[in-house]
Amino acid sequence: MVWYIAKRIAYSLLILLGVTFITYLLLYMIPADPARQIAGRSATTEVVANIRHQLGLDLPFYEQYVRYLGNLLQGDLGRSYVQRSEVSTLLASRVGPTLQLMAAGIGFELLIGITLGIVAALKRNSVLDQVLMAFSFIGVSSPHFIAAMLALYFFAVYLGWFPLGGYGGVEHLLLPAITLGVLGSGWYSRMVRSSMIEVLHQDFIRTARAKGLGRARVLLCHVLPNAIVPVIPMIGIDIGIFMSGLVVVESVFGWPGLGQLAWQAIQQVDIPIIVGVTMLSAVAIVLGNLVADLAVLFVDPRIDVTQT
């Protein structure tokens, strides 16, 4: 068990190293010469060469990478082209709102997904089941920007229930979080439905019913805890899909998080910021997967790690 956890953590670190290599490649691919940009247009070639040397741009490819890694470990993600400030400072100021929206969004995903999945499984093959599954299909087939714009138009402009985007209290948070929740819930409801159906057919459920336990009790104490286990690693995988939606939803709703920062950077072709957000979300995904994989071990003792 300890050996498995250690191996899993070591592997996550290896993946993180790979992540830094990819982000490094991305920055290396930028066609513009950063030294030339810092020096300005009127600088002599000597000045540019000097800056190149200071930045280490004259070093071979792999040495530059080692330098880049060293900088990363000190929290230096480079400088923004347009805003002239540290990428890490820009990112840090946006993490809070993004975490808020993430927590609320994933919360709604689980709430909606698990509820619909349970209802669909209990009413299997009924009209309700078909309607719910169609709903989940439409959710996962809709691009976030369209859903966000339609939600904003219908609930904020037409009905006037919510403010027109922006940051603030719960009323600002709800609409973007529900939009993310509805769109992402499809994967969960389909998964919970099939896993519920599988558990409902197992012998121990029949035994529980046979010994006289009530329907509700069997459902709550025996079916649900077993059916919900696959949802945990799913959250880890979902973080990756969720982050993509977050960028779009934040920019449509004007939510001042990492996604909006990335969106502003896209409009100004400010690549260091885009790469910074990409790296930060990759780190979040790797950590999310690690936590989810380890959490499953504690939730479900049947999982045998000696085989993996």
Partner: peptide, 23 residues
């Protein structure tokens, strides 16, 4: 397979944005 694991660590949209912006 390690390469696919590595690719899974990135949100597809953000990686695509970065690539498209650079290229």
């Amino acid at each position: 397979m390690r390469l696919t694991d590595l690719m899974m660590a990135f949100p597809a949209l953000l990686l695509a944005i970065a690539l498209a912006a650079i290229l």
